[in-house]
């Protein structure tokens, strides 16, 4: 690749990296995982499609990032099943011990099992701010959306893609994008209303 081509690829990646990172972060809830996803996406784009025109890079990068997120999600699903089971066991122990503590008159009490599950899905350090700022509540609500709904929502709202472009990035039909997007809005609205209450 010539220096000029390198420069234009660099420019493109610079313009896309923050949003890609943000989407990956909302999906994973982890900075390290999000950076890994962006890294995989950038390397793949550069090595496989570096010789394409700048106009092709946008849709290709969206598609690569979305499929990398999906791959991560599939791997996590299996890992989370084990983790959830382990947390369940741990939570059972905690619940029993906190009940014992409460019975002993300690007012601090212990976390209930629902809280422990929320911990598992909340985006790390931001968790402590969940009830303090609506902005965090929205991000948490986005993080909790089913992956396909989340992808459709973020691509449409954050990236400002059309239904057709979103379908291309997600590798599905335009009808599916409309369904995922509509369900995402419904779920978010409901979750935020619950948060307000």
């Amino acid at each position: 690749m010539t220096d000029q081509e390198n420069q234009s690829l660099n420019q493109f990646l610079m313009s896309a990296e923050r949003q890609a990172y943000r989407m990956a972060f909302i999906a994973t809830g982890s900075r390290e995982d999000a950076l890994d996803i962006v890294q995989d996406g950038m390397l793949k784009l550069a090595q496989k499609y570096g010789d394409r025109t700048a106009a092709d890079w946008g849709p290709l990068f969206h598609r690569i990032i979305q499929s990398t997120i999906r791959d991560w999600y599939r791997r996590q699903k299996v890992r989370n099943r084990w983790r959830t089971w382990l947390e369940f066991t741990k939570a059972g122990t905690l619940q029993r011990s906190s009940k014992d503590t409460a019975d002993a008159g300690d007012e601090s009490g212990g976390q209930n099992i629902i809280d422990l599950f929320e911990d598992l899905h909340a985006p790390g350090p931001a968790l402590k701010l969940v009830n303090e700022r609506t902005i965090d509540a929205l991000e948490v609500a986005l993080h909790r959306l089913p992956l396909r709904q989340q992808q459709a929502f973020l691509l449409r709202v954050l990236e400002g893609l059309s239904v057709e472009e979103t379908a291309n990035a997600m590798g599905c039909t335009q009808g599916s994008v409309k369904t995922h997007f509509s369900r995402a809005i419904h779920t978010l609205r409901k979750q935020l209303e619950d948060h307000r209450e």
């Binding site: 081509e5 660099n10 990646l13 950076l35 962006v38 890294q39 950038m42 550069a46 090595q47």
Partner: peptide
């Protein structure tokens, strides 16, 4: 992110 980007651009030439 910038470091990742530089690596990716360099890998394009190497690729």
């Amino acid at each position: 992110l910038a470091a990742i980007r530089h690596r990716a651009v360099a890998s394009a030439s190497q690729g």
